[in-house]
Amino acid sequence: MTSGNPISIREFILEPKLAYLDLRLLAGENGLDSQMISNPRIQKPGLALAGFLPYVKPGRIQILGESEYAFLQTLEPSEAIRRMSAVVQENIPAVLSTKGHTPPLEVLALCDEIGVPCIRTLQQTSDTIEGASAFLEDALADRTQLHGVLVDVFSHGTLIVGEPGIGKSECALELIYRGHRLVADDVVVVHRTHNHGLRGGPHALLPNFLELRGVGIIDVQKHFGMTASSPSVEVSLVIELVKLTPEHCEQEKLWHQRVRENPEAWSSQTTILGIEVPKFVMAVAPGRDFALMVETAVKKCLLAQRGVDDEGVFLDAIDRIAAGEGNKGT
């Protein structure tokens, strides 16, 4: 697991997801590539402008909004400049001024001198904070690379794992044939998103590629059209393909025992980047149609999300009959 690389101010300004902020550089051009945002949280330096500096955190972008400017208005102009200059010199990556406000020229000159970019947007502070935080949380999120195939099945990101050669890519191909979309083959890059989700995508070098043993590497968009792949999806389910070995039979016995004790435990869970994801283990055997099995597992999860628990209803009915309460359907 690694954390996302810090983002330079140049990347921040040019980020397409923040295009609506129309970020303009006012000063500090020489810091565009050297100043880095390493902390996804933004900060409003209200207390710092009042003179309390210890909590200005390095690596966090500082946002000057209406309230900060209103406060500075209450001070003598020279004092306001002194306070702002103190904040700018606190080892911060950049100052972002909202609602079209512009810091005084003296402060901009200082930004130029010490290489701290000062950026401006016309948007409101709340919109700016929301957009910038969401982007930074995702970009700086913890990430990991997993070996497997990620397919978007009914908009449910399904990660198929298992040892090399077990048939993950073949299963994905069959799913693509059924109209589902390939997200990543072989190397799946997973990020933890700001809303405690997991977003998976392909390695930067491998979008749309699928490797099929005996056939070669194929570009699924060229074979199946542009709707056959998707750039990323929320990882919602893990399917592990295993060989039918004596060990697995042993595991299956344990699993049956567990299900007898707790009928809800059909599926297990796995943890990716600290987040629990439901997992189904399927043994590979001749004659099993895995794409159909995967589709069915996804539908089961979708039903569960809507509060429909098919086996629960069935098992409850059996329990009632066993207790002599219901009729046997005759």
Partner: peptide, 12 residues
């Protein structure tokens, strides 16, 4: 780290 038994990962 990538699995060396499959080529796409290795190529990355």
């Amino acid at each position: 780290e990538v699995n060396a038994k499959s080529i796409l990962g290795l190529l990355t």
